[in-house]
Design a protein around this nucleic acid. Structure first.
Length: 266
DNA sequence: ATGACTCATTACATGAGA
């Protein structure tokens, strides 16, 4: 079984590239973030022609998440219980979608960016992560006898958990993504019992998943590692390999993020 | 070359991304 996550920065501008990725890699379940379209605008046809079912959650041109699966797609949840809302007229944004695929509970997550430390979006980001941690800790059903739970929390976490996850910490002085509260909010998932399997399999520095479009960041390999996969213990133990598909950042029409692929033993 | 932002919008300038 192959599970991948990818912030595509608009599915409508990238659908051909995504379909080619599915065919090339044989990915069975793909979690997408930043689809940037409403549900009725999502280009489902190409996925369905390729044998995938698709569940989408998109409310506007902002955010948007989806799951494509060729191993079943059931019990779709749009948003997670307790997910914070944002804005003057508070809206639960399209940042989380869950579905059961091939015996796994998969969540495609697009954590709020935070924007700036003095911006309300930053407090929203921390609250969002805290509420997701609370909810997902319950899914593990620790102490109630569910050691075989197959749960994957994958996506764009918008946190660089280690200094080595950015090319130059000096550039991020006073910026979001690297602060102690954000890193604590990210680490709380490990404390709840999840295993971040991408670093487990790829411990190297400069294994980035995102490069800004500006200032030749990709050719200079000045990137950030912010896309991760937290797995329940049973799912982590099935993970045999992880690939950060950095070739997908090359060429015209690339997303600024690349796919992260998990290989899971059957 | 892996190359000098990109995407969506009752668009033609602005907001968001990180």
């Amino acid at each position: 079984m192959r599970l991948a996550t990818w912030n595509v920065n608009s599915i409508r501008s990238r659908v051909d590239r995504v379909l080619a990725f599915l065919e090339r890699t044989g990915t069975d379940v793909l979690a997408l973030q930043e689809t940037k379209c409403k549900d009725e605008q999502f280009p489902r046809e190409g996925f369905e022609a390729a044998g995938y079912q698709v569940a989408t959650f998109g409310l506007s041109q902002w955010n948007g998440v989806a799951i494509a699966s060729r191993v079943g797609l059931d019990d779709v949840a749009r948003g997670f219980p307790g997910q914070p809302a944002f804005g003057a007229a508070p809206v639960v944004e399209a940042r989380a979608i869950g579905a059961t695929c091939g015996g796994m509970r998969v969540w495609s997550l697009y954590v709020p960016n935070g924007r700036a430390l003095d911006n309300p979006h930053y407090a929203y980001k921390l609250e969002w992560l805290a509420r997701l941690r609370d909810q997902s800790a319950g899914w593990l059903a620790q102490g109630t006898g569910n050691p075989d739970a197959q749960i994957a929390l994958v996506g764009d976490w918008n946190v660089a958990p280690e200094d080595s996850d950015v090319w130059d910490m000096a550039v991020f002085d006073g910026q979001t993504h690297v602060t102690a509260p954000e890193r604590a909010a990210f680490a709380a998932f490990a404390q709840a019992g999840y295993v971040e399997v991408t670093r487990q399999h790829i411990p190297q520095d400069r294994a980035y998943t995102y490069w800004d479009y500006q200032q030749l960041r990709f050719p200079k390999n000045e990137g950030m590692r912010i896309d991760f996969a937290y797995a329940s213990a049973a799912l982590a133990s099935r993970t045999t390999g992880v690939v950060i598909d950095r070739n997908e950042r090359k060429g015209k029409g690339a997303s600024d993020h690349v796919p992260v692929i998990l290989d899971l033993a059957d």
